[in-house]
Write a protein that binds this DNA or RNA. Structure first.
Lengths: 216, 216, 216, 216
DNA sequence: TGCTAATCGAGACGGTACGTCTAGTCTTTTT
DNA sequence: AAAAAGACTAGACGTACCGTCTCGATTAGCA
């Protein structure tokens, strides 16, 4: 861990060991004590760092959280050649990433922090926008393949999907199974109206229930 | 406001004036100082109430927030006889309610609070579940009318729609115009696939089977 | 003890059971929790009485302490026919009374209380004056027997002896053995005994009154 | 007063300005509001100091009182070459010191505090012991001069004299005139002189007039 | 090589809020 | 009329953090 007791200044420039020790400590504190126990004071104690050292490099609690999150965040947007699988795969990997690393706790904390700190909110908004654009590319690829209507707002679709993920994170429902994720994605992709025509469950069972507008 | 300086005990039972003054003060503090400035101490000061009086009736900051929210929350689930209009109307009224009253700030704060306090998280989860069930009834009505496939998971649809609302609240995007809301609802209702008619299984097998609007 | 759970009002007059229960509880609280844990609140809880009931009959914490003390205080001023034995006996019985009942704690508390409450101080002063007069009677009896010079200030002697007792109480030194008490009394006595020989007043007037054992 | 608004940390060590401001404030609060109005909160307000700064250096209310008292306490034990004058002088200077500075209030408070806090009691006991030893030296000097019998317990004499002072402090009787003090001291002294028969006035003149047990 | 400047751990500082405790007052209900 | 019950405002308790500050030590890079 970053508990290097003899860590000192390395001269008139940032000591990367300190930065690492602080990020390590921040993650550890968050995991062990939760967001409510996460304080600059606790991180400094854990990292054997002076508080000013933290404040020098991270202006706020959230900035620190953000860096910790960035260090962990590696969610790929798969390209299976099929939008449903892309989206389900994205949600699955995001959920499991949030569940199995500390990144879930961190991101929750970040969202919470944004509710009381406007600058954090701005940063989070910016970040979210970027992520939506990124996720939206899966939809754009589907458009290019002709899977999806050309006038569909890819960012809005990304927003719908990401929103679903966010709220499940925020309400401790990251244990959703693949069936539920696939069903949710299916609703966005194919709709739920009676003559939207495909029953996803039926489809999965290998049968089709044609419901409407079928003639002859 | 509730700044009744002469408020006293009314005997060995709860004084509703005090309760009101505290809820009023809580709302005012939240509006004026934001979630970061929202403290029991500040509420007590504003309400001219003793802290123990607050703690006697609300075990936590969140419990107080919750009551303040409940006092304001009046979002109806319209019954227009048409699911799209129902859902768009629901989102519109929810967004404007959050935008135009303090309930938006309060609910954001509540979600934030839930991230650091497990009991709040539990209460919020319970509440959310109830709201989803309620919203899901719009879908159930549509099912009954035959608008929506019988095996659609109404709660999941409600989840999708509510998630969209939550994230817009949490990221300061309550200014979404009706067009955007209608489009988002439309995606869930009708799907986004090119002609609403792709058999995903087929796609998964690399082929496309046109299933709808098939003539002859 | 006074923990009668079903005690009720007995109508439009003071309920002696309540008074007793309160005094019992006050004593018990003082013994169990010490002066720092002694509060009207705690006494009310212990006595299963309402705080107003206590305040109705005892205007202050000290008034209650005083009554509790009075209930216990039974220190006799022995008359052995010899002043030294009288005073030593008095101190012995006072020390053991303070040591072996709760009255020591109570009186200490009373003195402490008097330091922050002027009305208590006044009551205590009055009480002390009365006790000194009482104790002084032992000296007066000795005067009558000719043991002590006629112009000795009996109250001042009582003051000296009582002061010794007070400070030993206040500094947890009630374990003084009889030898010490007798020695202390002895120091005071030999100066006032009829043949202790010098009349201080006379000395101050520049004259000497030889009192005893002078020959030639 | 100590109302230095810009007082700040001077690095990772105690700021003597803060300490002074706090001691000043403590004394002022005690003088102005009395012991009942003396709270750490009030001292912090008065000193413009944070409560934790006070608690960092003084573990309890009493520790603070003690330091304030120590700052003021300058009672000399005079050496007039005559024990009576030494003791009367000591009492006179102690009484006037207690009367004319705030040290009287402070010491009273300290004694009161000791009645509810065992650690304070211990400190006070230690302090008292030290003072008695100190005062006892006046008696020891008198022994060396042959004024006092060799087997007299100097500490016990000091105890008797100090007890008299304490109780007068605790019962608002610091207005005792010199005659009373001299009489009280006289009572104790005449009993401890070498043969119970010295004329103090004569001693003061440097001569000893044997008055008792004189033969032929 | 010696000086300057930035960085480090450390921890004190003035503050604010926490959640609990007690003070003393008040009113209703019960006897 | 008095007791029980318990709510009320008020404010102190001692603790945890906040974000800022100053210190003395350390070391890179410039002179």
């Amino acid at each position: 861990m970053g508990l290097d007791p003899g860590r000192r200044s390395i001269g008139a420039r940032r000591n990367p060991d300190s930065a690492d020790a602080i990020l390590d400590a921040a993650e550890a504190v968050l995991v062990e004590a939760g967001y409510s126990g996460f304080s600059i004071e606790a991180v400094a104690r854990r990292a054997r760092a002076g508080k000013p050292t933290i404040y020098r490099w991270w202006p706020s609690k959230a900035a620190l959280l953000f860096d910790v999150y960035q260090r962990l965040k590696r969610v790929d947007h798969p390209d299976t050649g099929n939008l449903e699988d892309d989206l389900v795969g994205f949600l699955k990997s995001l959920f499991s990433h949030w569940r199995e690393t500390s990144s879930g706790s961190i991101f929750r904390s970040l969202i919470a922090e944004a509710q009381s700190d406007a600058t954090v909110a701005a940063v989070l908004a910016e970040y979210t926008k970027g992520r939506h654009a990124h996720t939206g590319q899966m939809v754009e690829r589907a458009k290019a393949r002709g899977e999806v209507a050309a006038d569909v707002d890819a960012t809005l679709v990304a927003d719908l999907v990401a929103s679903f993920a966010w709220t499940h994170l925020l309400t401790n429902r990251l244990d959703a199974d693949e069936t539920t994720l696939r069903r949710a994605v299916g609703y966005v992709l194919k709709g739920i109206e009676a003559d939207g025509s495909v029953d996803p469950a039926a489809v999965r069972r290998g049968r089709r229930r044609v419901i409407g507008r079928v003639t002859g």
